[in-house]
Simulated assay, not measured.
Amino acid sequence: MPSDPSSAKRALRADLRERRQNLTATERERAETGITKNLQTLVAELGARSLSCYLSGPAEPNTRPFLNWAFAEGLRVLLPISREDGLLDWTVDDGESEALGIHGWPEAVGELLGPIAVNDVDLIVVPAAAVDESGMRMGWGKGYFDKTLGSMEKCPPVFAVVFDGEVLDEVPRERHDEPVTGAVTPTRIIRFR
C-alpha cells in the first residue's frame, strides 16, 4: 500500500466510482433486492426499533426500498442532513420528503434534531466506498460519518452498505478513519468485531 493514504484513497475511490457506473440495470436490481433483504434480516437479528440510515445517491446501493419497508414497519429512522461545519444534523424519515443537500447528495427534509440525536438509535447504517476485512471503512472523502462515529460515547452497531466487490483485503487508512461493526452486501451480512 502506498505511503500516502490520502492519494491511495483518491485512486481507489476513482476505481470504485467507475466500477459502480459500469453496473448494469439487472445487476443494480439484484443488488437492491439482496441489500434490502439483508438489512431487514439485520434489523430483526438486532431487535432494532430505531436506526439511522441515509438516502442513497444514483451510483450507491439503493437504500430506498429498505427505508420504505422500515417506515411501513413503524421503525423510527433518522436520516442525516449535512452541515457546513462538517457535522450531521438528523431528521425523522417521513417516507417521502427529500432534496439535494449542500454536496449535491439526496438528503431528507424535516425538523432538525441536531448531531446528538443519533446517540439514541439501536443501529447505524452508513454509506461507504469500500470496507476491508478488519472492518475499516473508506467513505467518499467528506468525513461526516467518521466525525459522527468518532464523537459518540456509546456507539450502537454500525454497518456499511457496499456492493460485493467492495469488501477488500485492505483499504488505505488515516488517523481520523472510524471502523464499522459490519457490512451489508447484496449477498451477505458480514460482522467484523
Rank of each mutant, 00 (worst) to 15 (best):
Arg20Lys: 14
Ala129Val: 12
Asp4Ala: 11
Ser50Ala: 14
Pro65Tyr: 07
Ala128Lys: 09
Arg49Ile: 08
Pro156Val: 05
Arg175Thr: 12
Leu55Pro: 01
Pro172Phe: 02
Ile81Trp: 02
Ile124Leu: 13
Pro157Asp: 03
Gly114Ile: 11
Val167Phe: 01
Asn38Ala: 07
Phe71Arg: 15
Gly57Met: 13
His103Ala: 15
Gly139Glu: 00
Thr26Ala: 13
Ser151Tyr: 01
Pro58Asn: 08
Leu78Ile: 08
Ala108Gln: 05
Val109Met: 08
Arg137His: 09
Thr36Leu: 02
Asp4Asn: 15
Thr187Ala: 11
Lys37Tyr: 01
Gly101Tyr: 03
Gly143Val: 06
Leu46Gln: 14
Ile190Thr: 13
Asp4Ile: 10
Pro65Thr: 11
Val118Ser: 10
Asn38Phe: 06
Ser6Gly: 10
Gly114Asn: 12
Leu79Cys: 04
Leu42Asn: 03
Phe66Cys: 09
Glu96Asp: 01
Tyr144His: 11
Trp105Tyr: 14
Val126Phe: 13
Leu123Tyr: 09
Asp120Met: 14
Arg20Pro: 03
Arg188Asp: 01
Asn68Gly: 12
Phe159Ala: 01
Trp140Gly: 08
Thr24Phe: 03
Ala31Glu: 02
Leu78Lys: 07
Ser56Ala: 15
Pro106Ile: 02
Asp85Tyr: 07
Thr33His: 12
Val131Asp: 04
Asn38Lys: 09
Pro80Leu: 04
Ala160Asp: 00
Gly74Met: 13
Thr91Met: 00
Pro2Phe: 11
Arg175Tyr: 05
Ala99Phe: 00
Glu107Asp: 09
Leu55Phe: 06
Leu113Tyr: 06
Leu51Asn: 04
Ile81His: 02
Thr41Arg: 14
Arg10Lys: 15
Asn119Glu: 15
Gly104Tyr: 02
Cys53Ala: 15
Ile35Cys: 07
Gly47Ser: 09
Leu168Arg: 02
Glu174Gln: 14
Arg83Ala: 08
Asp89Glu: 06
Asn119Leu: 09
Asn62Asp: 15
Leu39Gly: 06
Arg193Phe: 08
Arg83Ser: 08
Thr63Arg: 01
Thr24Met: 05
Thr91Ala: 14
Lys154Cys: 03
Lys154Arg: 13
Trp90Val: 00
Asn68Cys: 09
Ala160Val: 02
Pro127Ala: 14
Val171Ala: 03
Lys9Cys: 04
Asn62Ala: 11
Ile102Asp: 07
Pro58Tyr: 04
Glu107Val: 12
Leu67Ser: 03
Leu75Asp: 09
His103Leu: 15
Glu18Asn: 12
Thr36Glu: 12
Arg13Pro: 04
Ser6Pro: 00
Gln21Pro: 00
Glu60Val: 07
Arg137Cys: 09
Leu51Met: 15
Ala128Gln: 11
His176Gly: 05
Val171Glu: 04
Asn119Met: 12
Arg30Asp: 11
Arg83Asp: 08
Leu75Ile: 13
Leu113Ser: 05
Gly165Arg: 05
Leu78Met: 10
Pro172Cys: 06
Lys147Asn: 13
Gly57Gln: 07
Trp140Leu: 12
Asp93Leu: 05
